[in-house]
Design a protein around this nucleic acid. Structure first.
Lengths: 180, 180
DNA sequence: TTCGACACTATCGAGTCGATATATCATTCC
DNA sequence: GGAATGATATATCGACTCGATAGTGTCGAA
C-alpha cells in the first residue's frame, strides 16, 4: 500500500488536512504499523486532487495559516474499494535493533547487553502508548482489533527480551572468556 | 540503518557477492526484519568500494557470469563499529493488512473475515519458514536469539488472529445486521 | 521577552523499491 | 527432443518515499 492509498483510506474515515493525516500515521491508531512523511503525503494529496479522487476546500483562518481540508469523493471511494480488493502484501518489520545485534556479535559483542536493556525500555514505552490509545471507549471494532493485535505481538517481543537477555549475555561471555 | 551499513554488517559475517547479500536479506536469518533490493545493494557496494571500506575481487567463472566477491577492509570494520555505536532507531512494522482492515471496516466490511483468514495462513507459512532456519544447529547465539525473538512475536500475532477472528466477524455482523 | 511547542503549509536531495534487461545452466515436464 | 521454469549472477531506471529543512503564525511558560 502506497501513501496514495493510505490517504484515501484515512479520508474514508473522515475529512482531514495533510497535517492531521500525518498525525494519525505517526501517533494515532496507525502509528505502530505505518509511516509516512510530509514529503510523501502532500504530493499524494495534490495528485489525488488533480485526479478527482479527493476534494479540497480551503478554510481561511484569521489566526493561523490556511487549512486545506480534504474530503473523499465518490470516485475516490471507488478507487479505495478497488485497492482493497487485491489482498495486502506481507507485513514487513524493519528492525535496526535486531540487525545491530547480529552485527555487533562479531564486531563489538561487549555492547550487546546494553543494547538489549535499552530496547526493553523502548518496548515498554511503546506498549504504554498503545495501551493509552486502547483505553478510548469510542474505538471501532476493527480499530480495537488492530490495536490489540499490535499490543499482543509487542508484549510477546518484550517478554522474550526480558526473559532471555541474561541468557544471551551469559552465552556471549562464555564464548569469549579471554575478553574479560 | 541504511543499506550501506547493512552491507558492511553482512560482510563482517563473511565475504559475499551482491547476489548473496540479497539472498540473506530476503531469505536468511535477516529476512523477517529487513529488506533491500538489488537497486540499493549494488550502488551501495560500488560506493563502499570507492571509499575503500570494502574490497572486491573478481572471480571469472567459465560457466556462469563473473562473480564479484566483496570483502570488508579494516577501514570498513571500523566504520561498522562506529555505526553500531549510536543506538538503533525504533523498530518499524509496515502492515498493509492492518491498514486494510481499518479501511475496509468503513468501505467494504464484508471482506474482512476473508482477509483475516488469509492472513492467518500467511502467518503460519512464515512461522514454518523461520522454524526451519532455527533448526540449524550452527547458528551463533545472537542469530538464535534474533530468530527466537521473531518467532515469539510472530506466534503471538498468529494466536491473536486465530482466537479473535470470530469475535471480530460477529461484532461486524452485529453492527450492520441489515446487510445480511 | 525570548524560548520552545504546536499548527499548518510545502519543497528538495538523497536513498530506496520494484520492475526490467541480459546471460547461462539445471531441472522438470510434456 | 524441446519448452518452460527457476536458480545464479550482474546491473540500471523511473517512480516513490524519507528525513531534513524552511516559513509563518499562536500560545503558554520560563
Amino acid at each position: 500500500m502506497n501513501v496514495r492509498t493510505f490517504c484515501l483510506g484515512i479520508l474514508a474515515l473522515g475529512d482531514a488536512t495533510g497535517y492531521e493525516i500525518r498525525k494519525m500515521v505517526s501517533q494515532g491508531p496507525f502509528s505502530f504499523f505505518s509511516e509516512a512523511s510530509f514529503g510523501s503525503i502532500y504530493p499524494a494529496l495534490a495528485r489525488l486532487t488533480e485526479e478527482g479522487l479527493v476534494e479540497c476546500r480551503e478554510e481561511a483562518q484569521s489566526k493561523r495559516p490556511d487549512k486545506k481540508i480534504y474530503r473523499l469523493t465518490s470516485a475516490g471511494r471507488a478507487a479505495l474499494e478497488a485497492a482493497l480488493q487485491n489482498d495486502p502484501g506481507p507485513d514487513r518489520t524493519r528492525s535496526d535493533f535486531l540487525a545491530a545485534l547480529l552485527f555487533a556479535e562479531c564486531v563489538a559483542p561487549e555492547r550487546i547487553p546494553a543494547m538489549v536493556a535499552s530496547r526493553i525500555a523502548q518496548h515498554r514505552t511503546q506498549i504504554a502508548a498503545l495501551e493509552e490509545i486502547a483505553d478510548d471507549p469510542d474505538l471501532s471494532p476493527a480499530a480495537r482489533f488492530v490495536i490489540e493485535y499490535g499490543l499482543q505481538s509487542l508484549k510477546a517481543a518484550r517478554d522474550y527480551l526480558e526473559s532471555h537477555a541474561d541468557g544471551l549475555a551469559r552465552e556471549l561471555a562464555g564464548a569469549r572468556p579471554a575478553a574479560e
